[in-house]
Amino acid sequence: MTSGLINTGALVKMLYSSLLASIGTAVVFAAAILGAVRASDMRRANRSAAAVAYAAVATVGVLVVVAVIVYGLLLIARK
């Protein structure tokens, strides 16, 4: 299983995949919240086009977070 030498490949994989996944999902989810809050503000200000655009940002953000989680779990389960 191990050669006795440090398995740098696995460590690097753990490093970049966990950093990418955690920072990436946090940023995208924050963008989704930004979209949802701004969409609500724009609706109140009767700016329909901007409201729709921000709502789209919120929806895409949530979908991306869910997709990343499902993809990550599938990747782990398939190994």
Binding site: K13, M14, S17, S18, A21, S22, T25, A26, K79
Partner: peptide, 23 residues
Amino acid sequence: PAQGFAAQGAGAAVILAASSVGY
């Protein structure tokens, strides 16, 4: 809640990434 989300997300990502390589 934002800190909680970041802390839990980071913890989950590290543990799952480690599990995938067998650590």
